[in-house]
Design a protein around this nucleic acid. Structure first.
Length: 619
RNA sequence: GACCCAUUGGUCAAGUGGUCAAGACACCACCCUCUCACGGUGGAAUCAGGGGUUCGAGUCCCCUAUGGGUCACCA
């Protein structure tokens, strides 16, 4: 907050503006034109990461051929931003430091409203959420809608709902009913005045300038650079518009030429610096020298500028973002440095990867629709399961902790950035499903049923009325085998559950499997004839199985599997074959949970009808 | 191409110079068993390669290779 101390070589006549800060410090804005301001701007060191000694900015703007450029920065700033009347200090006051305990972290998620959000985003969002909430901090949703071209109408709602579905809840920012919080607006498109105020300030201190280069001109530059095997970009001597004097600029602007605002970079990329990163410990980068675009032709900021301005004024402490931002980190650091602001703690996460053929690659919204969060909602993954899987991916020590504390909710786990992986992990659907089985075992069958009904209402319309009608039956079905010492774990996600239990409902019941190898149609009919003859709905499980045994023995099958394995030639088959025939008739499948239990749920009428129908179909 | 990041079994990974390199998922076999699932037992399977440093290296250094990312008026 206290960035501008008075320089050593100043006289009052050199200051052209002075402010009283809200904190009572004497703040002074000065123009670059006369004073050596660098000593005050660049002497500041940060808690995390530091820039090497930055080269002095020339007291006067000098063109590439060493000619002095006639430039009054205040005049230029007013020409560029005539409507901006507020100052950076005004915003400092308007967005005061948060009154939070020192350990509290303030994080933010900044989705762009394309309506698409995938598992990789959820992975980062989860880290943001845990960091903020386990430290008593604040978690903000900021909509990064600075690119009109990509904007999809109403997609904020999709994003908010998708995140909410997976248990990512925000304290501040955009919500379904407006914005919440003191640090808004939370849509970047509504913050343009703030960006432009900072931009104007950058112009005033000679650190930013308008550029009129057209796409064709930029292309030409790039081509020349490629021929000379130079790093492409608008920088150094290639940044021709650095040389424009006030009159040039005024003429172009009056003529209505479109312009962007560029950073006047002074970094020296031949130097190396280490930047602290909470996940990677330290990364090595080179100072930026690109005159990055800060404001686009339409006056709206690029990500780089919006990130610096917003994360500063929203008082964000930790920026969690994908490693694709590592390469532009120097631009951000330079901006923070120039503005005299402390940068947040950076947390660059590794990408979630996907197998594509036989190589891995970053999750892509275009290529991987099945990674989209909406897809997970469609097939009905349970949020608790996905959260649990995400945390095992994010902090691999979670699994061990969870084994030791099976009853504790994951909110009790101490999430840490240090345990996040620095190399990209492959998303493993097998593992997700395995995690889901355990999570669902701990979820009550009532809750599973309700979740299933909600899911069906949205994504499986034909099932919704049936589930609603038979909710009690549904609960009984879901409860099968859960109370044993070794409970069944066969529920993963809604679509899978639906398929798993569909045979209980006459609407979906069909015979899908074939008779076992040991049993032909005639033998099957014999088994079912005996089964029907002795069938009693009131039998208990033991009685029921005794009858199966009787039939097994009578028809020449082995009652004990071991006997059959020893001398298969002595038998027509084994008890498993007999029960499989019954199972096939009752469920349509060769595999299912305990037949007796299923029959209890189906009811006598339905069971008998299925047995008879199946028998009739055997010829 | 330049720059950055990464590299322990099929997958997720523990490991921070010193017992036979944890564990989980998946896989295979066997056991349990009316099928499946669950559970149990066992198995196969990893330090990318090469140089150093050291009494000793998955761990430290260098080189190479491979994979990933970035190089926009997109985020």
């Amino acid at each position: 907050m206290t960035h501008w101390s008075s320089g050593q070589d100043t006289t009052l006549s050199r200051w052209n503006q002075g402010f009283e800060s809200p904190m009572g410090h004497h703040w002074i804005l000065q123009t670059i034109s006369e004073t050596n301001w660098r000593s005050s701007f660049f002497s500041q060191r940060h808690a995390f990461g530091s820039l090497p000694e930055t080269k002095e900015r020339p007291a006067k703007r000098v063109s590439n051929d060493d000619k002095e450029i006639n430039m009054d920065y205040n005049k230029l700033a007013n020409l560029l931003f005539p409507d901006i009347t507020k100052s950076v200090a005004d915003y400092e006051e308007h967005y005061p430091k948060r009154k939070l305990p020192p350990e509290a972290k303030v994080t933010r998620l900044g989705p762009s409203p394309t309506g698409f959000i995938h598992l990789g985003n959820l992975y980062g969002a989860f880290a943001d959420e845990r960091l903020a909430h386990q430290s008593g901090g604040v978690f903000i949703l900021r909509i990064e809608d600075t690119d009109q071209k990509r904007k999809v109408e109403g997609s904020e709602e999709v994003v908010i709902k998708a995140l909410d579905y997976f248990g990512i809840h925000f304290d501040e920012g955009a919500t379904l009913d407006g914005e919440k919080g003191e640090y808004g607006p939370y849509y970047q498109s509504n913050r343009v005045a703030i960006y432009q105020t900072v931009a104007k300030h950058l112009v005033e201190i000679g650190c930013a300038y308008p550029s009129f280069a057209t796409a064709e001109e930029l292309d030409e530059i790039r081509q020349k650079q490629e021929v000379q095997k130079l790093v492409p970009g608008y920088y150094g001597e290639w940044a021709l518009d650095r040389n424009l004097n006030y009159e040039d600029i005024e003429t172009k602007i009056k003529a209505g030429e479109p312009w962007v605002l560029r950073l006047l970079s002074t970094g020296d990329p031949s130097e190396t610096m280490q930047v602290e990163d909470a996940i990677r410990k330290s990364v090595q980068v080179h100072p930026n020298n690109m005159d990055a675009v800060l404001l686009k032709t339409n006056g709206v900021p690029t990500y780089h500028f919006a990130h610096v301005v917003d994360d500063h004024f929203m008082r964000i402490t930790h920026v969690v973002r994908g490693e694709e931002w590592l390469s532009t980190l120097p631009i951000h650091l330079e901006l923070f440095e120039i503005l005299g602001w402390d940068h947040p703690v950076y947390c660059h996460t590794a990408h979630l990867m996907k197998m594509d053929g036989d190589t891995k690659r970053k999750l892509s919204k275009r290529k991987d629709p099945e990674m989209s969060l909406s897809y997970y909602a469609e097939v009905g993954h349970f949020p608790a399961a996905v959260r649990e899987y995400i945390i095992t991916l994010a902090n691999s020590n979670y699994e061990e902790w969870h084994q030791a504390n099976p009853e504790q909710p994951l909110e009790e786990f101490q999430f840490s950035l240090e345990h996040m992986s620095t190399s990209g992990a492959l998303f493993d659907m097998n593992k997700l499903n395995d995690v889901a089985k355990d999570v669902l075992l701990k979820t009550s069958e009532e809750d599973i049923a309700d979740f299933l009904i909600n899911w069906a209402t949205r994504y499986k319309e034909e099932a919704a009325p049936i589930f609603n009608r038979d909710r009690d039956k549904l609960i009984k079905i879901l409860a099968i085998g859960r109370d044993e010492k070794k409970p069944r774990k066969d529920l993963e996600y809604c679509q899978q559950i639906f398929e798993f239990i569909s045979y209980f409902f006459d609407e979906w019941f069909t015979i899908v499997d074939e008779l076992p190898e040991n049993v032909n149609a005639q033998a099957a009919r014999a088994i079912l004839t005996d089964y029907l003859a002795t069938y009693d709905q009131n039998d208990d499980n033991g009685n029921w199985f005794n009858k199966i045994r009787d039939i097994t023995e009578k028809l020449g099958y082995a009652v004990k599997m071991k006997d059959y394995k020893k001398h298969p030639e002595d038998y027509n088959g084994h008890v498993g074959d007999v029960s499989t025939v019954v199972r096939l008739a009752v469920t349509g499948r060769r595999n299912s949970p305990d037949i007796w239990t299923i029959q209890q749920i189906l009811g006598e009428k339905s069971v008998l009808s299925r047995l008879q129908t199946y028998m009739g179909s055997l010829s």
